[in-house]
């Protein structure tokens, strides 16, 4: 069997690429290990930091994969997370925050996601246009709520910090990817989403409740946006109306890099996870290799991140397209 015939093999290749990337950047960062203990301690803290900082992207990559599978897209995720965060930030940071701001944040996330879904499902507005409009609209609402201020009530909320540290994010991601992931993977629900992405009209005639599924997927993104807002605000302690600009494209790039097709009908959650990690390692690695870059390169090494990101995406999709064509031939 050729590797392109089995999506699992592609995930192995992504994993290999990830390990190669980690090894290269560890070498470039100039870290040297004297003992096995050093090695373990370094990678424990490295992976911990990596996962903690990419939690919002990981959370939304889950939802974005599902929405891309249905041949939809959600460009509003960055604005959505920022708006949930801004609304929560307008509450004072005390114990009451947990039963005022947090439930309101949840409700906001669900409502924003539902609104996207309703426009796509009920009014038949193409998803790219709906979420483009809501991206601008939600970002505008962020400015209405916050103005030019940057607020940080999160630091003083008892226990809130936990959501941004390793143990907190592991619980969140574990529940989503280790329990939710396999459950979704084996569900009839996911197969219905695949069918909607393959052919929407055929799916409707096959008795799949297309409108309801569309609503569910976009509302799920709203819920994940709420979780991402919790994790982002807990880690960064503050939020402003301009936070998370360009986040949507970061999530889409990661998911597509993981092998999900934007035309719909194909994609894996594991691929999305690996796609996010590839980008996070790249970002972190280039930051760590700044001393090496200053010595050997005539330009700022961190600027290479954009170049690699674009090139990785293009090459990834190109290779996956060739594989797809061959497997159909």
């Amino acid at each position: 069997m050729n590797w392109h015939e089995a999506p699992d093999m592609r995930n192995w290749i992504l994993l290999l690429l990830l390990l190669l990337e980690i090894a290269t950047f560890t070498f470039l960062s100039g870290v040297r290990f004297d003992s096995a203990g050093d090695f373990t301690a370094y990678f424990q803290s490295y992976l911990g930091d990596l996962i903690t900082q990419s939690t919002p992207t990981l959370l939304l990559a889950f939802g974005m994969t599902l929405v891309l599978i249905t041949a939809g897209i959600d460009l509003s995720v960055g604005s959505m997370v920022a708006l949930v965060g801004c609304i929560m930030a307008s509450f004072p940071g005390n114990t009451e925050f947990w039963w005022t701001a947090v439930p309101l944040g949840l409700l906001t996330g669900l409502t924003l996601g539902f609104l996207n879904g309703a426009l796509v499902a009920w009014l038949d507005v193409p998803p790219i246009i709906t979420t483009l409009g809501t991206m601008i609209f939600y970002r505008g609402l962020c400015f209405v709520v916050m103005g030019d201020l940057e607020k940080a009530p999160f630091i003083t909320v008892p226990g809130y910090e936990w959501l941004g540290i390793f143990s907190g994010v592991i619980v969140m991601l574990g529940l989503l990817y280790l329990i939710g992931g396999p459950y979704v993977y084996h569900s009839r629900w996911l197969r219905e989403l695949f069918m909607m992405g393959g052919n929407r009209i055929a799916a409707r005639y096959a008795g799949i409740p297309v409108q309801r599924r569309t609503l569910q997927v976009y509302t799920l993104i709203g819920f994940l946006g709420f979780l991402a807002a919790l994790s982002f605000t807990a880690r960064n302690s503050s939020i402003s109306a301009g936070s998370l600009q360009g986040f949507e494209l970061q999530v889409i790039v990661a998911v597509v890099l993981g092998g999900t097709r934007v035309q719909g009908g194909s994609g894996t959650l594991l691929g999305a996870f690996l796609g996010v990690m590839l980008i996070a390692v790249l970002e972190e690695g280039l930051r760590g290799a700044s001393i090496w870059g200053d010595t050997y390169l005539p330009f700022e090494i961190s600027h290479l991140e954009y170049i690699f990101l674009g090139a990785l995406l293009l090459i990834g999709v190109w290779v996956s397209n060739i594989a797809h064509q061959r497997s159909r031939a």
Binding site: L249, V253, H303, L304, E305, I307, L309, G310, A311, V317
Partner: peptide
Amino acid sequence: IVTLAGLPFYRGLAL
């Protein structure tokens, strides 16, 4: 996809 890849790539190129 091509222009989504171009978005960060050209930004990096500009820098």
